[in-house]
């Protein structure tokens, strides 16, 4: 491969795939024209001239950027929501971590150096989990960046009209940030319960080390297909809504059905065999073994966020959806001429 071909390929690395071949062909054609002109004189050193030409033409990345080829993993339209979700997840992780730490500090009557050591170990052990959580969030946003239509950016390019501020909000207009947040959090829960169910549990400090005790039982996993179905359908509906931009009767009814389904599944789970329990076998061999029975009620706290996600949020949304369906705006008044 000659120098010009290598240069063109290097520029191509930074170009969007859609226009890459076309732009590459144009750059190649121009460079060869320029080189021909410079080496018309007999005995001209073509390679030296190519080197000089490419130096003048500029760094490949800069040339690609001049074609507007700056590519984002997460672009400016989603970045504020991404930042918000990261802060919420960071706050939740920190809160859960501190709660667990506080509980253990009281239980073990920790003080002084023991307290510092335990805290240090907790931070050290949490790094992997925190990075994993943040990595999943970045992944979900990167996918959304490529799935959501560009029309979402209309507010950046449309003519700015300050009277819009005074207009009453259209109740059927979808709220992008709410839907994106719902997609991201549903994605996190899907990943957590399907790929890392062993990380749903409580941490206990014993023998100078943190022991993580999973609390989900076999019974819980039996409900996963139903939970997955509901959550995947929910994500599908959210993406559809983001693309449409407006709620209508069909999407409201589908949303209503999904929320009712969520409550029904949660009800069946709660009245059926225990879905969370501290397994004495998991603590066997540790000084916590004898605590299994005493700690079991604690595991029930895990159910709180589950109940919020599966029952409280759906109930609130069902009420909101019902209000929207029954209070649909009257059609535009007919003008009598």
């Amino acid at each position: 491969m000659n120098l010009i071909e290598k240069y063109v390929a290097e520029v191509g690395k930074y170009l969007p795939r859609r226009n890459r071949a076309d732009i590459e062909a144009e750059i190649r054609s121009t460079l060869e024209d320029m080189l021909d002109e410079r080496t018309q004189a007999a005995g001209a050193d073509r390679e030296a001239a190519a080197l000089e030409l490419l130096k003048e033409y500029g760094p490949p990345r800069k040339v690609a950027e001049s074609y507007g080829a700056v590519q984002y993993l997460i672009g400016p339209r989603l970045f504020p929501i991404f930042e918000m979700v990261l802060k919420i997840v960071a706050a939740v992780l920190l809160g859960v971590g501190l709660l667990g730490f506080g509980f253990n500090a009281v239980r073990m009557d920790m003080a002084g150096p023991a307290l510092v050591t335990a805290l240090g170990k907790l931070i050290y052990d949490s790094v992997g989990g925190v990075l994993m959580a943040f990595g999943n969030i970045v992944l979900v946003f990167a996918i959304l960046e490529r799935v959501l239509p560009l029309s979402d950016q209309k507010d950046l390019t449309d003519e700015w009209d300050p009277t819009d501020l005074a207009k009453e909000e259209d109740p059927d207009q979808v709220k992008t940030s709410d839907l994106v947040a719902e997609i991201v959090f549903t994605g996190i829960f899907l990943a957590l319960f399907n790929l890392y169910p062993q990380y749903v549990g409580i941490v206990l400090f014993s023998d100078n080390q943190w022991t993580f005790v999973p609390v989900l039982t076999e019974a819980f996993s039996r409900y996963m297909p139903w939970i997955n179905l509901l959550w995947v359908l929910q994500v599908g509906l959210d993406v559809w809504l983001l693309r449409k931009g407006m709620w209508d009767v069909t999407t409201r009814l589908i949303n209503l059905a999904l929320k009712l389904g969520s409550i029904a599944v949660a009800y069946v789970m709660l009245v059926g065999p225990a879905i969370v329990k501290i397994d004495a076998d998991a603590l066997a061999g540790t000084t916590l073994a004898d605590l299994a029975v005493k700690l079991d009620p604690l595991s029930q706290f895990i159910l709180v966020p589950f109940l919020i996600v599966m029952i409280v949020v759906p109930v609130v949304e069902i009420v909101q959806t019902a209000i929207h369906l029954f209070r649909r705006r009257p059609s535009a008044p007919v003008t009598i001429k």
């Binding site: 732009i23 144009e26 750059i27 121009t30 033409y57 500029g58 040339v63 001049s66 074609y67």
Partner: peptide
């Protein structure tokens, strides 16, 4: 500059 012209043409 060619880096101005070609993007402009596009």
């Amino acid at each position: 500059d060619q880096s101005t012209l070609y993007p402009l043409l596009r």
